[in-house]
Design a protein around this nucleic acid. Sequence first.
DNA 1: CGTGTCATGTAATCAGTTACATGATTCA
DNA 2: TGAATCATGTAACTGATTACATGACACG
Lengths: 189, 189
Amino acid sequence: MPRKNASKYVLLGLIDWEPMSGYDIKKIVEENIRDFWHESYGNIYPTLQKLLDEGLADRRVEKQDGRPDRNVYNITAKGREALLSWLEAPTEERRSRDVFLAKFIFGHNLPLEANIERVERYREGREKRLAWYWEVTGDFRGEAHDNLKSLLEFLALRQGVLMTEARLRWCDEVLEAFQDLAGNQSSEE
Amino acid sequence: MPRKNASKYVLLGLIDWEPMSGYDIKKIVEENIRDFWHESYGNIYPTLQKLLDEGLADRRVEKQDGRPDRNVYNITAKGREALLSWLEAPTEERRSRDVFLAKFIFGHNLPLEANIERVERYREGREKRLAWYWEVTGDFRGEAHDNLKSLLEFLALRQGVLMTEARLRWCDEVLEAFQDLAGNQSSEE
DNA sequence: CGTGTCATGTAATCAGTTACATGATTCA
DNA sequence: TGAATCATGTAACTGATTACATGACACG
């Protein structure tokens, strides 16, 4: 069974939003969907070439003055077909890897304070991320979202907010449990 | 800069829990930490070999009657050192890829009903997962957790519960927003 | 005058999956 | 008799990262 190659379809989806260059893609990913997607140039450019080869996109060169030429990619009819069938296909459960949690469960090798510190640092990271969400969803919140596209973008970010808030609550639970444990152990002496 | 190779340290952490074989590792991962980690045999066996080569683990062959021999791996002093320095090193933000959300944001290419259906299916998946959590944390909940190791295992699962509950709430929000959108659009006619 | 932005690409390498290979035993 | 469990491993491949390479302009 072949692998999924989701990158290919995400690039296809982005040039379907509007025609753009590899450089644009990198920026859009970083600015709009960085919460759940990432791409490196070393993946973007070869993948765009593949889209061309397979006839899923075509490219026109845009000359600019004072700046390098841009290769702007357009989705083709065949490309839109491919995108749709990817969208319609069921998404199987992703088997993720969370390095933070992996380290967390082996934390009994370290003193309790080290574990507390780690969770506190993690908590700070979540706080920062939450602040970032409020920043970027500022223009979005309260907006009408009368069209599906902008609604979907907003809701994708919204998931990030809910996840981050849940992680914050988890941190609080954990820190409380650690305090309890420390209390019990000192009272046993 | 070298890549992380987190698998290596997770295997190290597992044989530090207790000496075990590649087969055991696969089972433990599947039963205890499948929520945030996964390993394939094609990765486990070569990685164990690497641990041997680097002196981070050693192996003894356990003969069994009626069953194939087991290669049981033990962490060495050097291995424990490596594990500790990995645990102490700060974990950088993982840049994840969520195929579900990626498809979600391109959903304006499909009719609203298709989007609703997708989220409903996703929601069902979360419900099932939540049921699974209650099953596996059954023995854990209410337990004393007087030692750090069992507490950490419980708390790692607990994060899964909170995440899944948050995703369920997100689904409800999304479905509500979709209903609103459908209502607005039909009232405009 | 150095840093940042614009812009595209390749080569080496890595981490990990999938598929294949083997083979005995137990259980329905 | 066929499926499931126990048990280990390799080879081919893929998806993606990192590092390298190039070069012009703008801004402070």
